[in-house]
Design a protein around this nucleic acid. Structure first.
Lengths: 205, 205, 205, 205
DNA sequence: ACGTAATCGAGACGGTACGTCCTGTCTTCAA
DNA sequence: TTGAAGACAGGACGTACCGTCTCGATTACGT
């Protein structure tokens, strides 16, 4: 039933994923069709249907292909000891990527597919977001061990608190997604909404 | 050119929006078509195309119809003086709505449309999310004035910090969306990620 | 279920049938597709599928359209009193039509469809061949009444005996299909295979 | 270039031809595909494409295989001296074969291919119909020499006159194909359409 | 109250894409 | 080297919808 992966044509695979990504960028998610991807990739439609069950999985794999180059070495976040600065650096980069016209359309397409398809969401959580999220958690853990974060802090919640607002503002376009906003999120998340006595801030590393 | 709204058939309008919402719930966004909505509503296709420019706006209006009942009195958040408790109450309700099978599919459909269509996102920000967001801001402002929140806090960032993680976890299914999670987000957002001297908690500055 | 014939677009109908006939002639039956007919006719595929259940019925109707001009007055065979001459005239015309490159491919296509589809064969017998066959029968009946044909002759068998060999030689290409052959068939059918005393032949009209 | 016939796998060849014939019978010409034949025969597609240039030639060879058993001794028609009786016998058998559900679909498929493909028609005339037609001619020649048929009779025309009507009625389903019809054709062909003095019948010239 | 003009349900139309089946070619691997 | 297996580019299938259009039949106005 499942086709023999061993015989798979790697050239066609890459052509399909590249075509899919490029088309997303050029014409936008709504106008991308399997037929269009096949034509652009110089491939028969059946070759797509043989290996991918849905348009969403093609898009997903297109992103996987992008990140394949960096495979081997798992991603890490910078760790200078200054947590706020490190987080700011990373979050600013995220914001810039989200504003990059080359990635915006494809990323929105991926987000859409994940929103609608639970299976894809699981795959995303495991294969695309997984390593990155682990790096984020790791950076926070390091800070926690240095006494810069609360001992009882749930690191997953912490990650959500920092990256959630940014991702959300991007998806819903609920406001300008700027570097300043990123910094505000970092600061506010670190300090909390409540008033804070100055003495409590800026503990030495 | 623009159709005369005065002559619009209100019965058809409601039938279309109800049919759209019901179909989203029953068959999911991907399988909902204008044609299907028209048939289900017992309406000609042209009647839809005459009044709505896209499927997304139909879905949007279907949500507007839902919230029409509560029109007149703008929404407010509870204000018992205990900010954490009030936020927890509201966020728990949000979580429960997101987990309600009656609303999940339609809400995901709306989120999808907003993600892909900037115009729709603006309409959403203004007409659907606007009043609610103002209520959230208002509750926080009230707390701020009572000295429970930092003076220099940007209330929009604060709203994002509280609701962003939840909305995000729901969209991406990046983890279980429970009442406990809602509470954790509230607590962590209020206190911040940094260690906080116990004495400093819940005390006016 | 059946579409409303009243709303049918007559222009499209003629374009489809003309395109079908022309394509048969130009590229041959095997390479004619519904898709090709639709494109050539400048018509959506659905417009063909809406009104015709199969490629065969389209081809059939294309022939019907051709003979629509002559509708009204039923066809008749010439009746000069000289049966052999009249039959020869008609059969020669048939042979020439079969050898006409404009009609050969379409006629072979129609023959093929009739061979494979009993329903189409019935439609052919009734609507396309029917009037013509009646005319043939009528000419023979006239001769029979004039004492030129056997009293107990079954006219349907007689028609088959004259036209069957020609049609068959055309279909199977079992030999050259010439005017001489047509005449031979007429003479042989009229006289029979058996030897015939000269006196029996050439009865005065 | 041309595959080496010596190395050909006879088992596969028979499996293919048998599968083709069986499929024609079971699902009809329109639904038979090379792919289907290969699967049914337990054979790779390439094995078919290697040895046959078209679906028509496969079908043709399937019929050849059927008549292979009788190879060696060329077919003959019965010759009791009573021509009418002998022809009736043979034509009745033909009619029965045409009405046999086991052969009808395959024979229609073969007829279709011959109608559309001149090369195949030539192969048919030579290899499948050839010997049989020669037998028919031979029987008539024998009768002619016995003075039962006209001296100047063209035997090919005579064969067409007898078998043409039957084959035609079968292909076009223009009427019931019965034993009675077969007999009528024989009688009418022998006697001709013209009136015949009773005394002249069955008498040597 | 009455024409008249817009809206309505209905659905045909030219199209695009779907997901499937098949064609004829090619490659891989076992015998 | 042949053959079974099956991937490949490509073309057509028959279906579902798109957004536009045309058809009467209401329907609500403005006179």
């Amino acid at each position: 039933m499942t086709p023999n992966t061993a015989r798979r044509n790697e050239t066609s695979r890459r052509a399909i994923l590249t075509a899919a990504f490029d088309l997303l960028q050029e014409v936008g998610y709504a106008k991308v069709s399997i037929e269009g991807i096949a034509t652009r990739a110089g491939v028969g439609k059946q070759t797509i249907y043989r290996w991918w069950p849905s348009k969403g999985t093609v898009i997903f794999d297109a992103f996987l292909l992008l990140s394949e180059g960096a495979e081997g070495e798992p991603p890490t976040l910078p760790d200078t000891g200054d947590l706020a600065a490190d987080l700011s650096l990373v979050l600013r980069a995220t914001v810039e990527e989200m504003n990059d016209p080359r990635y915006e359309q494809p990323m929105r397409a991926l987000a859409t597919e994940i929103t609608l398809d639970a299976e894809l969401a699981a795959a995303y959580a495991q294969r695309l977001d997984g390593p990155l999220r682990e790096a984020k958690r790791q950076r926070l853990r390091s800070a926690q061990q240095a006494g810069q974060l609360a001992d009882d802090l749930d690191l997953d919640v912490a990650v959500d608190l920092i990256w959630g607002p940014v991702l959300n503002r991007w998806l819903y376009r609920s406001g300008p997604l700027t570097i300043e906003y990123a910094d505000q999120v970092v600061t506010t998340a670190l300090n909390g909404l409540r008033p804070r006595r100055p003495a409590a801030q800026g503990m030495p590393a």
